[in-house]
């Protein structure tokens, strides 16, 4: 008996061809790539130094010298958005990492074990979901103090049940399949099966959920920074830029418009990317949130 590996039947070339035919994917991918490139670029070059305050140049309207204008400390908004991208991506990425790293093994374990372990996991999930995420994130940062690290933890914690749930649901659907039964018959253990067979098969689901959570993470980070509980100055962050902007909307609206657009575009790009991936790899799957 040959073991059929349950990978998508299509070849890589086929997937690529589909990807290039998928509008969501293309736009999303392009935007995400752009944001990532800008963030990386900011490590080696920004138009201006964002740690230097030039009070004399404060709240200047967009001009050839400062494309997006300057903020209340005379810093270049474009440069700050570039560096802020770094912060947003880092926070959201690590938060997704925490969620996947803890949530996926939990979900896979619950699905493999079933009964008591499964029930326990679902109850803990219920518990976490009962706390409005933002409220809890505010509480966590209020306890441990504001800062990027605590924001990551606060957002990460709420990614755990999300991934646990997705992993569990995906795994549950795969366990009864024939090739798993075959693997069990071959004497493979629960952990081995989970790693070798279940995980590759739910990878698509996790990838799609990952992009969604990444986008939500960026929104959450912006929200926390906006109420002053995220990254602290002098580290620029998009949410904080909006906080600084809101008292100056009348005289310096560019301070609010550009960082806000940076958030919208990044989140939009990630969501489109997620949609696209879901369409390409599994046309039947629909995204639920």
């Amino acid at each position: 008996m040959t073991m059929r590996v349950d990978l998508p039947e299509e070849t890589l070339a086929g997937v690529l061809a589909k990807a290039f035919g998928n509008r969501s994917f293309l736009i999303g991918f392009a935007i995400t790539l752009l944001v990532a490139a800008v963030a990386i670029l900011s490590f080696i070059w920004t138009p201006y130094d964002v740690t230097r305050l030039v009070i004399a140049d404060k709240t200047q309207a967009p001009s050839p010298a400062h494309w997006f204008g300057t903020d209340h400390f005379g810093r270049d908004i474009l440069s700050m958005i570039m560096v802020g991208a770094r912060n947003s991506i880092a926070v959201a990425l690590v938060a997704v990492g925490i969620g996947m790293g803890v949530g996926v093994p939990l979900g896979a374990f619950a699905a493999a074990r079933g009964s008591l372990a499964d029930e326990a996991l679902m109850r803990v999930n219920d518990l976490v979901f009962a706390f409005p995420a933002l409220l809890s994130a505010i509480m966590i940062t209020a306890i441990f103090g504001p800062g990027a690290v605590n924001a990551i933890i606060a957002i990460g914690i709420f990614n755990i049940p999300v991934f646990a749930r997705v992993a569990r649901a995906g795994a549950l659907a795969i366990w009864p399949r024939e090739f798993i039964l075959a693997a069990r018959a071959a004497g493979k253990g629960m952990t081995q099966i989970s790693v070798e067979h279940i995980l590759p098969n739910i990878a698509t689901l996790l990838l799609v959920q990952g992009t969604i959570q990444f986008a939500l993470g960026i929104l959450a980070e912006a929200g926390l920074s906006y109420v002053g509980l995220g990254a602290q100055p002098p580290m620029p962050s998009w949410g904080r830029m909006l906080f600084d902007a809101q008292t100056r909307m009348v005289t310096a609206p560019w301070m609010a418009i550009f960082p806000g657009m940076a958030i919208v575009i990044t989140v939009l790009g990630l969501n489109l990317l997620g949609d696209g991936i879901a369409d390409i790899l599994d046309p039947k799957s629909r995204r639920r949130r």
């Binding site: 740690t51 230097r52 305050l53 009070i55 209340h72 400390f73 100055p233 002098p234």
Partner: peptide, 11 residues
């Protein structure tokens, strides 16, 4: 606000 400026000056 003053804090951010002073931090930048002392840097």
């Amino acid at each position: 606000l003053g804090g951010e400026i002073i931090a930048s000056e002392l840097r």
